[in-house]
């Protein structure tokens, strides 16, 4: 195996870890609220624009902007669930789909109005630094972004395992009737969960802004990417989302290396079709 290929694979793993964080948000929302967030990538794109705006106007490094964006996105997600999505939870899937698609249309075109059709990317001062690890060359930005993403994901897992709110949210996912019986405020917990999902998106978007450029069509592309990752990993499984992100990250660079970079999404969709047919619950999803 050539060094070049090995470098590519490391790049894929590191980018994949950032994808994982974005997909984690989708997985958490679906696993608990049972709503498929068809505006997920569009929300990520908004977070990327926010990171770009902070970096350009306030000279704020996206790594430092990340907590701030995640916090604001948490609030947005909380209010969105409370004000709009909550009344659609009992409605059929296609109604939820149309609701979120109309939100997605609004976000894509709102960002087109605000930022125009051009690509925006954040160029940090250490953008071209690399670490030499044995024979490998690793981008500093990518490594930092992957580390931040992994830290955020792990913190979230600890939150769901240890904290009281986290346990209550898991209870809602496992047994909704039971959760109501013991007196949990399900509406509030759903809003918190949606907020956590959008916070993941906020953090992932801030990190992605250093790795890829954002323009209005980026949103729908990221939505599909997030879907592929969570289905491959298993909808509702947190470790599944992590694994799926890395897998898709690697498959993208391999498709780019062996075929053509523009064919990478075709490769990912082929993986999705195989997983849906052979193992619909995903690689790490449990049988329902």
């Amino acid at each position: 195996m050539s060094i070049d290929l090995a470098n590519q694979i490391v790049t894929g793993i590191l980018t994949g870890l950032v994808y994982s964080l974005m997909a984690l948000g989708l997985s958490v929302i679906f696993g608990v609220v049972r709503v498929v967030n068809f505006a997920h990538g569009e929300m990520t794109a908004l977070a990327m624009y926010a990171a770009w705006a902070l970096a350009t106007w306030l000279d704020l490094d996206p790594l430092l902007g990340m907590p701030l964006i995640a916090l604001v996105m948490f609030g947005c997600g909380y209010l969105l669930q409370r004000g709009l999505i909550d009344s659609f939870i009992a409605k059929p899937e296609h109604m939820q789909f149309i609701l979120l698609v109309s939100l997605a249309i609004i976000m894509v075109n709102g960002s087109l109005l605000a930022f125009g059709p051009d690509a925006h990317g954040v160029q940090v001062s250490y953008g071209f630094d690399t670490y030499e690890m044995g024979p490998l060359l690793v981008d500093k930005v990518r490594l930092l972004a992957a580390a931040a993403s992994l830290a955020f994901s792990l913190a979230l897992m600890v939150f769901f395992r240890r904290s009281k709110t986290g346990k209550a949210i898991r209870a809602c996912a496992d047994n909704l009737v039971g959760a109501r019986v013991i007196g949990l405020d399900v509406r509030r917990l759903y809003a918190v969960t949606f907020g956590i999902g959008t916070a993941c998106v906020g953090a992932a978007g801030a990190l992605l802004s250093m790795l890829i450029d954002v323009m209005p069509p980026t949103g729908p592309e990221l939505t599909l990417l997030a879907f592929i990752i969570v289905i491959v990993g298993g909808l509702g499984s947190m470790t599944g989302a992590l694994l799926g992100g890395v897998l898709i990250g690697v498959s993208e660079v391999l498709a780019g290396y062996f075929l053509m970079p523009s064919m990478k999404s075709m490769f990912s969709f082929a993986i999705l079709i195989v997983v849906l047919v052979a193992r619909p619950q995903g690689l790490l999803g449990g049988r329902k």
């Binding site: 109604m95 109309s102 249309i105 609004i106 087109l112 109005l113």
Partner: peptide
Amino acid sequence: AGLKQLCYGLSLLAIV
């Protein structure tokens, strides 16, 4: 650019 689609999205949202 985008204003038309933005209004379209808002109308759709109102209808659903």
